[in-house]
Nucleic acid binder design. Structure first.
Lengths: 108, 108
DNA sequence: ATTCTATATCGGAATTGATCTATATAGAGA
DNA sequence: TCTCTATATAGATCAATTCCGATATAGAAT
């Protein structure tokens, strides 16, 4: 046990970018930050790329790129419904990060 | 309260680099990773730049630069004794990060 | 005073990151 | 089938990061 900090580097790299940190934050409470969706529930399924694009003010390709980085770090998961791709925060991943920092803080 | 993830960006940027994450990890248990020091206690005062330089295999200017980044992110503190500068991990900062991730994980 | 030692600063090279525009693809609906 | 919509990919550009060698500085020791 007692995972070392270097294990977190991939996740931290993903969240070290302000846009991605902001997106991640929004995804933790979608109804507070995004309008309702026609196909796909904000909480159940996640938020579609288009909404995230609008909210960030970035272009769609840039947002797609950010989302892939978050996903390959295991911080979000994606689900495709019809034409849309919905991204959902993975709270378990955040909790694991919290654990590692917690035990780092109280390590001998 | 409930600090948002973007607040962590400066800290995360500092720790998103493998060398800095590794150094931070070593600093959490100096006696396990560094030889005893003549002037300055490993635990009490921290670890001198020279030891960190040797252990990383990087050059001294590069390590100095990494340490300044960690310090300005509030993750380590420094103390100068004679010719040496000793760096010590700030566990409180790590704990605060753990808190933010913890409450992010259980947010809705 | 001079030299030695530890760390800091400077300037530059190579790499990686963030972002855009343009275009492709895939599925839905008419 | 044709078109429309949402997302993906490609390619380019500009900025930021990482790292090094050379040199400066500051304090100790001789």
């Amino acid at each position: 046990m007692n995972k070392p900090l270097p294990d977190l580097v991939p996740s931290l790299r993903a969240l070290a970018n302000p846009q991605r940190a902001q997106i991640m934050d929004w995804l933790l409470d979608p109804p507070a930050h995004f309008p309702p969706q026609r196909d796909g529930d904000l909480i159940q399924d996640g938020v579609c790329v288009g909404f995230i694009t609008d909210k960030t003010g970035l272009t769609q390709p840039t947002v797609t790129s950010h989302m892939k980085i978050l996903e390959s770090a295991g911080l979000v998961s994606s689900k495709k419904i019809k034409n849309w791709v919905f991204y959902k925060a993975d709270r378990g991943a955040l909790d694991q990060i919290a654990q590692v920092f917690g035990q780092a803080a109280s390590r001998r």
